[in-house]
Amino acid sequence: MAHADERLFLWLNGFVGTIPALDRVVTWLVSDYLIPVTLALALVMMWFIKTDKDTRERHQIGVFVALTAMALSSLGVFIVNAMYFRPRPFESLDATLLFYRPTDSSFPSNAAAAVFGIAFAVWGVNRRIGSMFIAAAAVYGFSRVYAGVHYPLDIVASALIAAPVAWLTFRLRDLLMPIIRLVMKAVRILCLA
């Protein structure tokens, strides 16, 4: 399994340098700022976008659930990282790097788990918007492999951690409701919800 993972990584990372324009695009996509910030701004948009009150409230609750799922997915990765350390591919293999040299464990990807956590939670609220979020998270994951930061399995593991975490957060959102309702009531006073 690990051998196939390394081979797939080397095949994908082997394209670096063949199309300079693609490398430049990936350098932006893999950044800690483009896709995570875009998804965060999309959550801001989700907060306001619906015209009828009930649907808007469902989306606003979804924003809270997505942020909770993101935090819990990162926690899940933190726990796995504490038990298992996998060196980054650029440390073990002859890889070309389009990113800085992170020092934490490669498996699973914390950044990918966070964006997948948001994406899966949004999918639970709105399939169409959620699908776009998942596509963005997948592009982010792919870019991190292409750029030499992660093995493919690191990204798959992140999605596999984030999916049940998001599902559980979505299912248990009723436990968060007293806090969510209180915050939303406060925000409503400011005409923001």
Binding site: S31, D32, P36, V37, L98, F99, Y100, P102, N110
Partner: peptide
Amino acid sequence: FIWFFSTGTRNINDYEGGLDANTQALFF
């Protein structure tokens, strides 16, 4: 975004001048 990415190197580790996740969330 174009301005942000075209005015400097943005793929920087947090101990070399980039932002760690918490600082990034705070500034967001």
